[in-house]
Amino acid sequence: MKQWQALVRDIPDFPRPGILFKDITPVLADAEGFAAAVAAMVEPWREAGLDAVVGIESRGFILGAALAQALGTGFVPVRKPGRLPADTLSQDYALEYGTDRLEVHVDALPAGARVLLVDDVLATGGTLLAARSLMRRQGAEVAGATVLFEMLALGGRAHWDESVPLLAAAAY
């Protein structure tokens, strides 16, 4: 299987000076690379008894939808403010270059649903923590989280509850 990690491209000073952005669009554009990346993220969760995959805007949508298909579950989007048409729950969070907010439909999941959170990168951890908070407020059980890669120098894992599995397909 293709080594997808070599396809990740570094973009310095994006979206702000001092930020090194890891661009996964070359991974997505390469059929074998994309398949290998999804396979790496899916494999640990095949027997997890999941009801849904929760993808975090925006690259988490792409990866999450692919994981949901591979795992035979539904997909729930967690979006930026103002993009969901029905009633929502919202959660503010910090990221390495500012603050933001995530939202989910209040009726996206039934109480007790077992979910997997999916995003492209674990940086400072704020996005995953906000998504986990939204799921818990909704009454879902967060079985775990998976990311395509983890930015080790930013220390996001230190903020994660160790009793909930957090897996990264690669680390930089």
Results as ranks from 00 to 15, higher is better:
57 E>F: 01
79 R>N: 14
137 R>Y: 02
93 Y>T: 12
76 V>K: 03
10 D>G: 02
139 G>D: 07
30 D>I: 09
161 D>T: 01
152 L>V: 14
119 D>G: 07
150 E>I: 02
152 L>H: 07
124 T>I: 08
67 L>Q: 12
64 G>R: 04
118 V>P: 10
159 H>R: 15
169 A>R: 05
120 D>Y: 11
168 A>K: 00
99 T>M: 08
112 G>L: 02
28 L>H: 10
18 G>N: 06
42 V>T: 15
128 L>R: 00
115 V>H: 04
21 F>N: 12
18 G>E: 08
170 A>L: 06
73 T>F: 00
22 K>T: 13
48 A>S: 14
72 G>W: 07
15 P>G: 14
74 G>W: 00
87 D>Q: 09
166 L>M: 13
123 A>P: 04
54 V>L: 05
46 R>F: 05
79 R>L: 11
10 D>S: 10
45 W>I: 13
68 A>R: 05
103 E>G: 05
160 W>G: 12
6 A>E: 13
3 Q>V: 12
5 Q>S: 13
52 A>E: 00
116 L>Q: 06
83 R>N: 12
71 L>P: 03
145 A>N: 07
74 G>E: 03
15 P>I: 10
76 V>F: 07
169 A>S: 12
112 G>Y: 00
23 D>Q: 04
99 T>D: 08
158 A>T: 04
84 L>T: 11
53 V>G: 11
157 R>L: 15
86 A>I: 03
43 E>T: 15
72 G>A: 06
79 R>M: 13
104 V>Q: 06
162 E>Q: 11
126 G>L: 04
6 A>P: 01
132 R>H: 11
12 P>M: 02
5 Q>N: 09
81 P>Y: 01
29 A>F: 02
151 M>H: 06
119 D>E: 14
114 R>C: 08
75 F>Q: 03
26 P>S: 07
115 V>L: 00
44 P>W: 11
110 P>A: 08
160 W>S: 09
50 L>N: 00
113 A>Y: 00
93 Y>V: 10
90 S>L: 03
1 M>K: 07
51 D>H: 00
116 L>D: 05
31 A>G: 13
124 T>E: 03
9 R>G: 06
8 V>M: 06
17 P>N: 06
14 F>I: 11
142 V>I: 04
60 G>I: 03
74 G>F: 01
169 A>C: 12
142 V>D: 08
113 A>C: 05
20 L>F: 06
159 H>E: 11
43 E>K: 06
55 G>H: 01
39 A>M: 04
144 G>E: 07
162 E>L: 08
